[in-house]
Design a binder for these strands. Structure first.
Lengths: 328, 328
DNA sequence: AAAATAAATCGAAACGATACGAGTAAGGGG
DNA sequence: CCCCTTACTCGTATCGTTTCGATTTATTTT
């Protein structure tokens, strides 16, 4: 049905190899070039990437695998990755697995079946078994946001522990003693690191209270429930540090709904809510990850590995704390 | 390098076709089945989808092309589409084109080069030329959110005009006379339709004032600027209707920043902000599109077309208005 | 203008899977 | 135990492209 190289060869009376050469940017004789272009236009030829991929084992396609699509954290990074890769001629396939571990593996295998030339993965678990599937097949892989036990992949992460330390320390310096933490399950890398930073800031001051650490399940609802709990139990808390985007949202919802005020009732530092923090009054202080930089570094590292110029490496970027009127 | 069907055939002393049959779910003799499974495990065989796609011209892959990734409107619909399609054994490739018209075409061609079995597209323009590229090649295509001039595709849209009419009418019935509209560029289908509904609700009452229609550029910033403008010019407005997710956010930011109150200063009806509207006090009234249903209908329609059971059709769903405390 | 070099072109053989029609083994009835 | 039906199995051709070594054509050098 669809036109093939053979049809073009027939029409132009040239050999297959010549058409193929033209299609791949190799120079052909001017008159042949014209004839080929005419034939392509007439026949509406488009190259069959499946036949090509079968032969070349190169697809100029990168797979991106992430747990969730519906947050600015993911979409901002993806957007940046796409910008970098598209400009180098690569196509990008994005898969989200809805934080479902079996869907995560299925999605990875789907990407691999598309014979991607490389992968950017933000894994659910940090044991590295998922990443092994890719690196065992020799697929260049960059892992973002989390460090796993896999040694063959490269990593792009932020200094979670230190950023968290600085945020909490800021509250400490303002004189706060009872600072609550809303964090996530401790076997998740980022949650663990951020909790560690919180602990370090308070341990030095002899102010660490394990009963002020709450599990917000990394979700809007979980944090909403935790925050509601905190307020209703009338805990003697004067400040809060919330450690991701969704949980910041959830905590704010609870605070609003129960009529509490920031910073009068609680000093508040959130996470990754740069854009949204503007719509709250007062403006929220937040820890901000350099999202674009994460995407950029990941994409560039991946390209370097694909081109054989580079080997596995762990890149650590700095998060910054933006000032706001939510602390006093 | 990687194991192929030949290797398995060699190891099991069976023919290619038998291995292929097993891989495709056709029953083979029990002892052969065991032998094949053993060989597959030992060799770490994975099927080469490129070779398969070349032969079968079927890839069990659906392409999704949308203008933006960073909003719940898109991600909710995508999520639902994925759920439907994955459960039927399809893989999904998502491409966003950042509302860039040339990137949109490039992305479509990328998807087509991946030989997708079908497409779900939310096009930037409604002239249908982009869609033509797909339908001219005979690719089953479902267009969502917007209706274009292309006649071969199917459509899943909501009753924008009517929903908009009802929202504005609600304000009219509360006694509001000067109702502002923040909408988008009028050559975008949804913006046009929603504006038409607004006009119809006011024309009947002889209350239509063109100077109360503002272009929010469909973006947070655009709407923020428009709203700021409205407030600073002290226009005699008592109610507002904002016609998409981003613009609702933008307007709220401006209202918050300039110290105006909802509903005291303005009665307010937003769009598509179901989740976020909870974090505002008072709770926002919003027009809500049945996002999951859009995704579902689109996916099912596409599958029906692929299976040859069905032909082009336009499906119109109803948006609903959720009550809130933002109007009086 | 001939010789030497460089640049295009060529046809056939892959890449790894599936489709096809035909052949072979298993199971059941007489 | 043989025949018939049913159920697997088989080898080969094919999908559309690139690759390879070899050949032809064009260009430069002498």
């Amino acid at each position: 049905m669809a036109a093939t190289i053979k049809d073009i060869a027939k029409m132009t009376k040239l050999g297959y190899a010549t058409i193929s050469a033209y299609l791949n940017g190799v120079t052909v004789r001017p008159k042949n070039k014209i004839a080929i272009e005419k034939a392509i236009a007439e026949l509406g030829y488009v190259r069959n990437e499946y036949a090509r991929g079968l032969k070349t084992r190169k697809t100029m396609t990168i797979g991106v695998l992430i747990p969730e699509l519906n947050n600015t954290f993911s979409t901002t990074i993806i957007s940046e990755i796409e910008d970098c890769l598209l400009s180098k001629g690569y196509g990008v396939i994005v898969c989200d697995c809805k934080t479902d571990i079996s869907l995560e593996e299925r999605s990875l295998r789907f990407l691999m079946s598309k014979m991607v030339d490389g992968l950017v993965i933000m894994p659910i678990n940090t044991d590295g078994k998922l990443i092994d599937i890719a690196t065992d097949r020799g697929i260049p892989t960059v892992v973002i946001d989390r460090i796993t036990e896999n040694k063959k992949a490269s990593y792009v992460v932020i200094n979670n522990e230190e950023a968290s330390f600085e945020a909490v320390n800021k509250l400490v310096e303002l004189g706060h003693k009872n600072i609550a933490l809303i964090t996530g399950n401790q076997n998740i890398y980022t949650a663990r690191e951020r909790t560690n930073g919180y602990k370090r800031a308070l341990e030095g001051k002899n102010a660490l209270r394990e009963d002020l650490i709450f599990d917000g399940l990394l979700s809007v609802e979980g944090s909403y429930t935790a925050m509601k709990n905190i307020i209703e139990k009338r805990l003697d808390i004067t400040a809060l540090f919330v450690t991701n985007y969704e949980m910041t949202l959830g905590a704010i919802i609870a605070i609003n709904e129960l009529g509490k005020k920031i910073p009068q009732d609680y000093s508040f530092i959130g996470f990754d809510n740069q854009e949204l923090s503007r719509i709250f009054s007062p403006k929220l202080a937040t820890v901000n990850q350099p999202l674009k930089e994460i995407g950029q570094k990941a994409a560039r590292k991946l390209l370097a590995i694909i081109d054989g110029e580079d080997t596995a490496e762990t890149i650590i970027l700095d998060a910054e704390i933006s000032e706001g009127d939510s602390i006093k």
